[in-house]
Amino acid sequence: MAEKKEIISLKLYKSGMVVTVNEKPSYKEVKEALCAKFKESKDFFAGVKKLGFKGVPLTNKEYERLVKKVSDILEDSVELWENPEDNEKTEDKDKENINAQQILDRAFVEAEEKNTKFYKKTLRSGQCLESDGSVVLIGDVNPGAEVIAKGNIFVMGSVRGMVHAGKDGDKEAFVAALKLSPTQLRIADLITIPPEGDDKDYLSPEAAYIKEDKIFIEEFLQKRK
């Protein structure tokens, strides 16, 4: 991929946010990138209490200044998260508790990183949409049609054909649609088919994701207040 790697990438965990510093930058560059991200999606990041860092190390003082910057932007107190790697491990176990909501939230953070592309069309039998990143499709995926993406697949419409997210093995990829009744659904190297008689007449937005090495399908709007 020709795209330049971002200076930082963010990952949201239950107990906080981890910032990975990807290359050897100046402190100023990291600060600017981080502030830009947080300003951009201020509402989304509201509620983050801890900020951890990994990747290329900076000095402790610099970390503290960054945390301060972030708490100023969020207008909330944010503390430095020491040794986020340890927490990550326990949180990986915690993944049993993730739900569709969090999966979808992740998509916003990863939107740039996963090179999200938008399409507006209905895919009919025999047509195949392939993408090196994530796909947002406004339209339906009819039986016999396929959407295959390295990243996530989000369909603003009905999925009745075949969808394959994370085709190169990304187990964190997901598929979300306003109506999810695919012929077959794949994430990374897992394949599933919906149970018989599952076809609903009404739209029920659902997301499919991997949890404990199985594909789960869950309504994602019910948890909104």
Binding site: G126, G144, T183, Q184, I193, P194
Partner: peptide, 17 residues
């Protein structure tokens, strides 16, 4: 090829890899 149907008639369309 391109207009497959035998899988649907047999009810095996969701098992194709």
């Amino acid at each position: 090829i391109g207009l497959r149907n035998l899988d649907v008639v047999l009810g095996l369309e969701n098992r194709i890899v």
